[in-house]
Design a protein around this nucleic acid. Sequence first.
DNA 1: TCGACTTTGTGCATCCGTTCACAAGCGGTA
DNA 2: TACCGCTTGTGAACGGATGCACAAAGTCGA
Lengths: 256, 256
Amino acid sequence: MASQRGEGETTTTPAEPADRERARAIPEAAVARLAVYLRVLSGMADQGVTAVSSEELSQAAGVNAAKLRKDLSYIGSYGTRGVGYDVEVLVSHIERILGLTRNHSVAVVGIGNLGHALANYGGFPGRGFPVTALFDVDADLVGIPVGGIPVNHIDDITAVCLEREVSIGVIATPPPAAQSVCDRLVSAGVQCILNFAPVVLQVPDNVEVRKVDLAVEMQILSFHVARRADEAASVSAGIGPAGNNGLGVDGMVIRP
Amino acid sequence: MASQRGEGETTTTPAEPADRERARAIPEAAVARLAVYLRVLSGMADQGVTAVSSEELSQAAGVNAAKLRKDLSYIGSYGTRGVGYDVEVLVSHIERILGLTRNHSVAVVGIGNLGHALANYGGFPGRGFPVTALFDVDADLVGIPVGGIPVNHIDDITAVCLEREVSIGVIATPPPAAQSVCDRLVSAGVQCILNFAPVVLQVPDNVEVRKVDLAVEMQILSFHVARRADEAASVSAGIGPAGNNGLGVDGMVIRP
DNA sequence: TCGACTTTGTGCATCCGTTCACAAGCGGTA
DNA sequence: TACCGCTTGTGAACGGATGCACAAAGTCGA
């Protein structure tokens, strides 16, 4: 019965007691940005950069400098006034807060086009997320290794997930199967789900779902295309505001 | 030079004049939800449902009923008090606002694992987004059809995008190539970009970028795993609040 | 040792989005 | 026709996130 993860909290890093209340207080939007900062910082570290100011980092991450400092302040005060931040220090603290000091075993369900792509990443981008199990309904796929991992039958989800202590389930199935797969993952003790299926999943309160919805993304872009067209029409009709939208097609203006 | 899309605004639907100001006022979050409502409504229509109340629709979409009504109010008043909404009517109005009454030609750049998956969708989920061009740097791939469309060399982006009036560019390249590809798309007149590369793109003001970042999604989930572990530790130590988090592993509790 | 300069961390005002609560409006019924 | 119950649409309160501006705090050079 090795499913209740993180029971003993010996997580390599000292784990200061204040972290608990801190972690609970960090707004979700800030968490997402912290992940971005982490990537930028890692890149800097790889290039030998050892120190960085909030100004530099914020530009590289594409956010406001004040917002960046506020985000960092959620996890503690690790900067030096008049100097900036030590890249290594910041990286390790963000990793700690994001829970990246331990590995998170990932299961991918649905080995179609997308499932293949995900499995072949072999450990998700930005290590620490080893894919340890693959599932599909198709009996012909079972046993065949994809990205080095053999595909299991979907009926074995519970057993396999418990055995391999899967923390994160990725749903890459067709829409009709998604809710059923989700239910099975939940009953296997998986509390975090990344859902690629265009379906609104119903889950218990203690399960965290994040969805990646290509159709929605495309439609948001479509909305902006339409809005642009409308604005252009308004402007050319002399209705619109004196906006500074230079709609030049040939311009390759890159913002500094 | 047929690049300035939507010049004449004969968009099949009457296109009420008030729409312009409306579209500009709709918050982005609401736009994303409208896309979700649209999908749910389409599903209902397929099942022969003709009318729906805000309560029903909001449950199916997993949002607050009041929020749903406010979202719908952004696009106009198309409900009937005491009755609800006509499914067909709502579908057509949401489609109109989202600009789905016309097709949006899509180009996918980077035909690796993900690019393959995207190309093979053959017209993105939820029609209206035909993939009309594929690009890659690899000369070995050029000419080979993927999902029925031959791959072009990346150097031909500008010409091909202009010719096929691409409105939306999808970047599925490795990180180092992303910015360069983005620049080329922009100079080809593409104003909407969906970016799968874990890179912060720099673009001019008139270009809309949406990013899908798997690493960030995973790390947000990781954060929640860590937070859970901390909370569990606090609770078992008698520190935490009397939260109702029944961490039962066997429970398959589906919220109504 | 002292002062000038740089950059962090944060209180505060502002803005945007969510939620509540209720009046307005519509269909059905007597 | 007049009433009743139901559901929409929205004004207003609320809460959370964003951006500003500045004090606190450190480094560097004289």
